[in-house]
Design a protein around this nucleic acid. Structure first.
Lengths: 342, 342
DNA sequence: AGAAAAATTGGAAACGTTTCCAAAAATGAA
DNA sequence: TTCATTTTTGGAAACGTTTCCAATTTTTCT
């Protein structure tokens, strides 16, 4: 004997197929007696509904996709974790796909998601240029929420998105360093074109501008990816005669490279060099001295994204594009101080 | 007009529904002419098959589940990442679910997976005791591969599993420290009951035994989770008169606590204390001095698990349980040295 | 060339649900 | 009590595929 279907349940309860379905779905239009009999029969037979059949009929798979460059990146891992928790509570399954920031893989994944009729997609695009892909996803009936990117909107409609206030954070961090007396500050960041990097640079420069300082002191050292930052780059930067007195480094990898370079050059923190981490990683918290850092809640990003998506799924496609802007905090620790008098 | 179905394609190509399906599935029993016409029509109409309908008919969803305590744990994140890559190549989608190591959530997720007809599941059980859950998954027709756990086998059949040689690794690490002259070595590890922890303790003690040393020197400090290790524990351990001269610490969190404690007590590494990390984290690599560590490839775990699963999916359920045992390497760095003469 | 075998084809059933529709039953009003 | 209205019910259609079966065509062999 095969699997228990709703047909078996209906038969056992002595009612029609349709009634059994209605009873099980808790819907209206069912008498108390039938509801009781059917649930009892289902219980007794150990009936488990088949989601695939249901999905086919209802044209909704009950699944949400998550499209990021790399789930192993702690940044995205935490977002995925939080989003999964929220979506699971709402009865959705989360499927993940890595894009390695390649538009071709983004397109392929989007096509697959469409074919599988995913109800919604959380996506952190790897480039600004790929927006027809997401548009296609929406055309296929999926709700799309963008994770911390600015996706251009062709027809004037904003994409629902969860954004982090990197600009405000970077500005606050830079302001803090300027307040300590630093005049030559370097910002080491990957990705100058896309949102997080671009916003950070903007905030960094805005802090210089608001202090009325010479922008010459605002040294932006940018690379495509954090992989591209070599240990040697940091050495060169810190070894120069007019080296910066403070450093803002993004992420574990760049921060680690910078710290190693400082060590190689016998620069003691925070006396000879102030260091500030963008992103509060294990390394920043545990390093001696502990690194002052910009922190924002990845869990909040995941949660907010899930919430936005659910809201969109429930409310139909009506309603204007909702966006959330999450705050960035400056966590003061031991790695920043006034620069040595020269 | 709605979505393009295979019916439309058949009509456009002037063939029957069945022939169109056969042509598109590249199967036999199709003439060259029809194959050509149908693919052309499909191309021209932009036909995209509906996976849900196909799944319903073929009784296979083309999806693999991944059941771990927490995707945000870098350990699992990397595994998920690698597994996803391999499975995606094979045409499968990966869905993730976090269990927080709670049996109830494991059961719930397994039930959902069964209802959704997932073809296979990668699972890192949170306890040994929950094996009927996985048995139920298999009964539901899913292939199951265990990630680095020993799941008891009731009826003598081994579970397919990808295992990491934690015992060998711990033994090699301990042997190395003993070789340097250490006689009092502490192992700080969470989870004494389950596989990784249990195996590590076994390897640790085996190294003492093979050296013919008094097991008194083998100090096992275990807690339920790495959260439970307080900074104070490490302080107490290292502050005692007969403190260990070497420390093996598992994971970023415990390692960080131990390092902080060492710093608080003004113990300089490696002169006053040798430290060895189980797991090669960012922190271990970047710390000054760099921490000698046990390393194994998480990517290999993910890849091997995916491979095992695919093999099982393709080959039907025939074939004995396959298991992979992955090696652990000792990465020598600067944090270990001979103990100071006392 | 004719028969037997093999390959191809169209039509229909099946997968397990939900939902529509019309018929039946129950309820309410007159 | 009778008719109008609402609620419940059973039967069937639909979702979009794949696959079975029988009928037809093509190929192969004698």
């Amino acid at each position: 004997m095969g699997r228990i279907t709703i047909r078996d349940v209906a038969q056992a309860a002595g009612v029609s197929l349709g009634s059994a379905s209605r009873a099980l779905n808790g819907g209206k239009h069912v008498s108390a007696r039938i509801a009781r009999d059917v649930t009892a029969a289902a219980e007794q037979l150990g009936y488990e509904p088949d989601f695939l059949a249901r999905s086919l009929r209802t044209r909704s798979s009950g699944m949400i996709g998550c499209l990021v460059s790399d789930v192993a990146n702690p940044l995205y891992a935490s977002i995925v974790q939080a989003a999964e928790a929220r979506l699971r509570d709402a009865g959705y399954l989360l499927v993940v796909a890595n894009t390695a920031n390649e538009p071709a893989r983004e397109r392929a994944a989007a096509a697959e998601f469409r074919g599988r009729r995913l109800d919604g997609v959380l996506v952190a695009p790897g480039s600004d240029a790929n927006d027809e892909t997401w548009r296609g996803l929406v055309a296929g009936g999926a709700a799309v929420v963008i994770l911390d990117r600015d996706v251009p909107d062709a027809d004037g409609d904003d994409w629902p998105a969860v954004l982090v206030d990197h600009r405000g954070g970077a500005q606050a961090a830079t302001r803090y360093l300027i307040g300590l007396g630093h005049r030559r500050i370097a910002l080491l960041t990957p990705g100058t074109r896309m949102r997080p990097g671009r916003e950070r640079i903007a905030g960094f420069q805005a802090a210089f501008a608001e202090a009325g300082l010479d922008p010459i002191g605002a040294i932006v050292s940018a690379q495509e990816t954090s992989m591209d930052f070599a240990h040697g780059d940091a050495l060169a930067l810190l070894g120069a005669a007019d080296r910066p007195t403070a450093l803002i480094a993004l992420g574990t990898r760049i921060l680690a490279g910078a710290l190693r370079a400082a060590r190689d050059l016998n620069l003691s923190l925070p006396r000879d060099l102030s260091v500030l981490s963008v992103g509060d990683t294990d390394l920043a918290a545990v390093h001696a001295p502990a690194i002052t850092a910009l922190r924002w809640s990845l869990e909040d990003v995941g949660r907010a994204a899930a919430e936005l998506l659910l809201q969109r799924l429930r409310g139909g496609d009506a309603g204007a594009a909702a966006r959330a802007l999450l705050p960035v905090d400056l966590v003061l620790r031991e790695s920043c101080a006034a620069p040595a008098k020269s």
